Computed example of a mutant assay.
Amino acid sequence: MKILGVILAGGQARRMGGGDKGLLPLAGKPILSHVLERLEPQVEAVALNANGDATRFAHYGLPVISDSIDGFAGPLAGVLAGLDWAAEQGADAIVTAAADTPFFPCDLLPVLLLAAELEGTNLALAATPDPERGVSRHPTFGLWPVALREDLRLALEGGLRKVVLWTDTHNAADALFPNWDFDPFFNINTPEDLVVAETILREADA
Rank of each mutant, 00 (worst) to 15 (best):
G5Y: 00
G10T: 03
G11M: 03
A13G: 08
R14V: 13
R15G: 01
K21A: 12
G22Q: 12
L24M: 14
P25T: 08
P25L: 12
G28N: 15
K29W: 04
P30S: 10
E37N: 10
E40P: 01
V43F: 05
A47K: 11
A47I: 00
N51C: 14
R56P: 10
F57Y: 13
A58Q: 10
D67Y: 00
D70K: 14
G74K: 09
A77I: 01
G78V: 03
V79A: 07
L83V: 01
W85Q: 12
W85L: 04
A87V: 03
E88Q: 14
A91C: 07
A91P: 10
T96A: 09
A97T: 05
A98I: 00
C106D: 14
C106N: 09
L108F: 07
P110E: 01
P110W: 05
L113R: 15
L114W: 03
A116S: 13
A126F: 03
D130P: 06
D130V: 13
D130E: 12
P131L: 12
P131H: 05
R137D: 00
F141H: 15
L143Q: 02
P145C: 05
P145Q: 04
P145E: 03
R161N: 04
N171T: 06
A173R: 06
A175S: 09
L176S: 03
F177A: 01
P184L: 08
F186L: 11
I188G: 01
I188N: 09
P191S: 12
E192S: 14
L194T: 08
A197M: 07
A206T: 07
